[in-house]
Simulated assay, not measured.
Amino acid sequence: ERQAKLLPRWDIIKESVANYGCAIVFDDLKDACRMADVVAPEHLEIVTAAPRELLPYLHNAGAIFLGQYAPEPLGDYMAGPCHVLPTSGTARFFSPLSTDTFLKKTSVIEYTRDALESYAQDIIALAQSEHLDAHANSIAVRFAEENDNENR
């Protein structure tokens, strides 16, 4: 409040905090990290004695700022990460916008006969559990034809 009162938009800040703000206090920093993962903030500042130690417990934030000398505006204006971050908790399932977003990608899959055979029954079972019989059959026929030829 002391800092916000000095800003020109104090009235807006005060109303926003009154209507939408809260403070949650944790005894354990790992519990705070779990809450941060649920909230999945666009920006997350970790200002503790050893902020890097908490990084393994944080998975859902658009950008994470570590330490007292890494404030959020550093990321916006100088440090170089993308300024377009997932908002409203979408950091749980989206990443920041980057040049990678605009790249076209293709998966290339190649298996040997032996490699496919080692997974064949598992793939068939999964396909059948989803009632995708043609998927299951596309695996089965590859080995059925060989078995028919061997049995002749």
Score class of each variant (00 low, 15 high):
E146V: 08
C33T: 00
E146H: 08
F65K: 02
Q68Y: 12
V25H: 12
L126G: 02
I109L: 15
Y111N: 08
L132E: 02
A18R: 09
A115N: 13
E42Q: 09
E146W: 11
L55R: 04
I124D: 00
E145V: 15
A91W: 01
D31K: 07
R113C: 10
K30A: 15
I139D: 00
R142Q: 07
L126F: 10
L97T: 03
S138A: 09
P71N: 09
N137S: 10
C33A: 10
D114N: 15
A125E: 04
D133E: 15
L116R: 11
G75C: 01
E146R: 13
N151K: 13
F65A: 01
A140R: 10
L58Y: 01
N19M: 09
V108Y: 14
A23Q: 13
E15F: 09
C33E: 02
G21T: 01
S129A: 12
N149R: 15
A40P: 03
A63M: 06
Q128K: 14
E72C: 13
N60H: 06
G62A: 04
F93Q: 02
T106R: 15
A134D: 06
L126C: 04
L6W: 06
E42Y: 02
Y77P: 00
Y111P: 11
K14Q: 13
L132Y: 10
S118Q: 12
D100R: 13
L55Q: 07
N149F: 11
H43M: 02
P96L: 14
L6G: 11
S98T: 10
I13D: 08
Y20V: 05
I124Y: 01
G21M: 03
A120S: 10
H43F: 05
E150I: 06
D114M: 09
L66N: 04
P56D: 02
Q121G: 02
R113N: 14
G67V: 05
T90Y: 05
A125P: 00
G21S: 04
A49E: 15
T99L: 15
A125N: 05
V84Y: 02
K14M: 07
G89Y: 01
T90W: 03
E146D: 13
K104I: 03
V38C: 05
V141C: 07
G89D: 00
I13E: 03
G89S: 03
I123W: 01
T106D: 12
F65H: 04
H131G: 09
I46Q: 00
L85V: 03
A115E: 15
L44I: 02
H59Q: 05
E130Q: 11
H59K: 10
R142Y: 01
V39E: 01
K5D: 11
A144P: 01
S98R: 05
F93R: 02
H135I: 10
T101R: 08
E53T: 14
S95N: 11
A115F: 14
S88G: 06
A127Y: 03
A125I: 04
D31M: 07
L74P: 01
H131K: 14
A18M: 11
E15N: 12
A70T: 15
G75M: 00
V17A: 10
K30T: 14
S107T: 15
L103F: 11
D11M: 12
V17T: 08
E130V: 06
F143L: 03
S118T: 05
L66Y: 07
A49F: 11
